[in-house]
């Protein structure tokens, strides 16, 4: 199941920006967005149980958007952490946004795309939207890529913000087996998505290096694990792939 059946073969050459925006909106009926919605139902149950008022939960879903950052924010609110310390913890978990956005921007902008529009749309980037866009955006004509991402990103955030509000009151505590499986959907979905969407060998190298180093640093240096594993694992993968390619060229 690959969600919407948009490929280079089925997408007409002359899609208008509106068509691309609507095509992006249709992404709400895709496997990635379905899995993210299940995760947000889980998040609503978690915050309801923790006693955070529903208005604040809806507000943070729209404003922060990235799920790992919100989990850390809720943790800080519950333990009454000082504002500056909470900012530091959340900001460290969000550094990964920078390379994620930086790798997507060159794929979707044209020479005439205004920077303010990219700044505005960057808010809708989190892991799901990034994986979705990296997987499908190259099948969209370049002139419509920004509109395509806007259609998907804005719809995904709006729907999930509303969903959190609805689920907050409705969700009674799930049996542990169900909530365990709900939680596990997210990492497994990310793994398979990154594998199928990789158009460069370096992505497979980086996936392996990040998984191994992520596990190691989570045990050794849990405060900075994501950052360390990302920088070191990514650099190792990049260097390893370059070396392998140079060797292959010399032998070939």
């Amino acid at each position: 199941m690959r969600g919407i059946s948009l490929t280079v073969h089925t997408a007409p050459e002359h899609l208008s920006r509106t068509d691309c925006f609507l095509l992006g909106m249709r992404g709400i009926f895709s496997l990635p967005s379905f899995i993210l919605m299940l995760s947000f139902v889980g998040f609503a149950a978690f915050t309801a149980e923790a006693g955070i008022p529903v208005g604040q939960v809806i507000f943070m879903t729209g404003m922060v958007w990235a799920l790992p950052a919100k989990v850390i924010l809720v943790g800080s609110m519950l333990s009454g952490t000082h504002l500056a310390a909470a900012f530091l913890a959340v900001t460290l978990s969000s550094v990964r946004m920078m390379p994620m956005v930086a790798s997507l921007v060159p794929e979707m902008r044209t020479r005439r795309t205004p920077t303010w529009l990219l700044l505005l749309l960057s808010h809708f980037i989190a892991i799901t939207a990034w994986v979705f866009a990296m997987e499908r955006i190259h099948a969209v004509p370049r002139a419509g890529r920004v509109a395509f991402f806007a259609g998907f990103g804005i719809t995904l955030t709006t729907v999930n913000t509303a969903l959190v509000g609805l689920a907050y009151g409705a969700v009674t505590t799930f049996p542990p087996l169900v909530s365990g499986c709900l939680f596990f959907l997210t990492p497994v979905y990310f793994l398979t998505s990154i594998w199928v969407s990789a158009r460069h060998r370096v992505v497979h190298f980086a996936l392996g290096a990040g998984l191994v180093l992520g596990g190691v640093f989570a045990a050794v240096a849990p405060e900075y694990d994501i950052l360390l594993a990302g920088l070191l694992g990514g650099t190792l993968a990049w260097w390893g792939e370059r070396t392998a390619r140079a060797k292959g060229e010399r032998q070939g």
Partner: peptide, 9 residues
């Protein structure tokens, strides 16, 4: 791209 992927991994 490699760093972004490793971070998500």
């Amino acid at each position: 791209r490699a760093v972004a992927t490793a971070l998500v991994a």
